[in-house]
Design a protein around this nucleic acid. Structure first.
Lengths: 336, 336
DNA sequence: CTTTGATGCACAATCGATTTCGCATAATCA
DNA sequence: TGATTATGCGAAATCGATTGTGCATCAAAG
């Protein structure tokens, strides 16, 4: 039974009475002519027998690059974010990079996630979490850490985003065009770009239509089920409850719909819904959910490409992708 | 502007006219008494000024361990698996380990995922993907690679699982106890333990009740939406269509429900459903989904603990957790 | 028959951090 | 005062892979 764990250049060199450097060259650049064909073949043979694989740490140390990228994400239980990671990870693998992922900001503060990735093990970072302290990114950039942002913008650090203002605007405009006058928004956290930018888009659309945004019509959630249900309950229990809700993502929409059902509010007859992300499950629901489609997979891929370009010294510029509304049955005219 | 990238032990040593080894000792073991208190303080100061952080690669090379674990998962778009990863990752971070994740077996073959993690960079693996070639795990073990399995069993390699046979049995028994006689199963891939073990549990329950399993009542899916819808369509279009379906997971159940709706089959009046995993969304659905609850977070945590114990040389034994049925409105008596 | 030039490989240094030895100087005791 | 023991730090080796330089040997050219 071989024990590949042990095979090093020296192991092989000793077996053949050669020098490690010779073995290295033979394996790395077989047809350079520097090593005779016979020797190359002998080395290749022994290497294979011993299940030789170069030690990644030594290689990283020597070459000053590890072919690993770090990724932070707020959570993975959101299908959209999971897809984003999957596509990023797949692209990275194609390019020879491994991904170190830190996720779940419920349990670990975003700044803590970042810090944990700063042990210099990775060549660069893809940051998809928000931070309470925007200057942290400036400091990071100043100290030479290579990173690109994903899905959430901050300052003018380069990254890949979708146009959240626009997405929120077309979602809201859709509800307006259906004849709704009382439209509320279940928003994400206000300190996160995906949160405040969608609020901004919602506001723009409402203002442009001359519609009132009453107190309590912007409910803040943490984009999880519990906070979404809580915010929805408050919003739907009020006197002047809305006839339509634009939710910051599909999970929030689903959670709010469940609250509506409990309160005896019919969807979509009494209450229309528009979600965000166009999750896989949106079209499977008994009342298929109208949602804003975002090219999630493209974003993950593009972020990796951008980071790799940046690592090679290229100057990179932010990419902003355009969201698109997908109409389904959860949104109709009020009272229909 | 500091450039932490550059600070090494030698940098600091040179500044102070000391030897790198002295600096190392001072920072690593300040109060050993080997270095004078004054010197320690001077070193600490300079280290901080330069933003010194030990080079992780060098450390790994020297200590022959990287404090990184590798993880393979079939996909993350399944909320249950995402939760499993999140809990594992969080536990790993607590113990000082980073996680290198490779996911998405749609794009990358499981064996390929594994291979990509075998560059010796990680101290051990948590394997949650299946493999077409069970002997691969034997070979892995033989070559000294440390790993534990998660969620999917294979041979008698240690791991953390839930009792899939039992879970499938109680799900099926539930439907039987409601009076269903024609019960079908939308299964996962047959070469995967979660696939065939649940089929086994389904069979056991049906046999014990003396119920017939007709041809076409075990539909194979890849646990994704597309294949689930396709299998459901076949199953529900047949003459002797079932009055109840036990699905291999909640997403499959949801997909099948959408097909039922399209075919004009009412849920639960004409068709009862039981899912698996008790996903977050199960209770939010307009017709809340009966599902088999699995302690997913515990599994992720336990797998990390097990791997770490194994890395420290301890002998470890498989853990099998018990699933539990959560009854909701998607399952009722036939014709009710 | 000597010189030039390939050809084929060995040597040694490097990437940083760690650790085992061991050597100074100063303090303590006989 | 000479021997002993702390005390404080330097030297060097090690973990593997890589790469610039240098030294042989043998063949071709003059």
């Amino acid at each position: 039974m071989d024990t590949p764990k042990n095979a090093s250049l020296r192991t092989i060199a000793d077996v053949l009475g050669l020098h490690p450097s010779t073995v290295s060259r033979a394996l790395r650049d077989p047809k350079s002519g520097r090593i005779s064909a016979k020797t190359v073949e002998r080395i290749r043979q022994v290497a294979e027998d011993h299940g030789y694989a170069p030690n990644a740490w030594a290689k990283s140390l020597r070459e000053k690059r590890s072919m690993m990228v770090g990724l932070t994400m707020p959570r993975l239980t959101d299908t959209g974010l999971a897809q984003m990671f999957e596509s990023a990870q797949h692209r990275a693998l194609q390019l020879g990079y491994h991904t170190v992922l830190v996720a779940n900001e419920r349990e670990t503060a975003p700044d803590e996630m970042l810090r944990s990735l700063l042990d210099g093990r990775t060549d660069g970072l893809i940051i998809s979490t928000s931070t309470r302290d925007p200057e942290m990114l400036d400091r990071l950039a100043a100290t030479g850490v290579q990173f690109v942002l994903l899905n959430r913008s901050s300052g003018d650090h380069p990254g890949v985003f979708s146009d959240d203002v626009r997405g929120a605007r077309i979602a809201t405009e859709h509800l307006i065009s259906l004849g709704h006058l009382r439209i509320a928004h279940l928003a994400g956290p206000e300190h996160v770009s995906t949160g405040y930018l969608r609020i901004e888009g919602y506001r723009q659309a409402m203002d442009a239509a001359g519609l009132d945004i009453r107190h309590g019509w912007i409910g803040e959630t943490n984009l999880d089920i519990e906070s979404a249900r809580s915010a929805a309950r408050t919003m739907l229990s009020a006197e002047d409850r809305p006839t339509a809700i634009f939710a910051a993502n599909d999970t929030v929409a689903l959670a709010a719909m469940s609250v509506a059902r409990e309160l005896g509010i019919r969807v979509p007859e009494d209450l229309s819904f528009v979600g965000y992300n166009d999750s896989e499950f949106a079209e499977l629901l008994p009342i298929p959910l109208t949602s804003v489609h975002v090219p999630i997979a493209e974003m993950g891929t593009a972020a990796v490409d951008m980071l790799v370009r940046k690592l090679s010294g290229e100057e990179v510029f932010s990419i902003v992708l355009t969201p698109k509304l997908v109409k389904r049955q959860s949104s109709t005219s009020p009272g229909a």
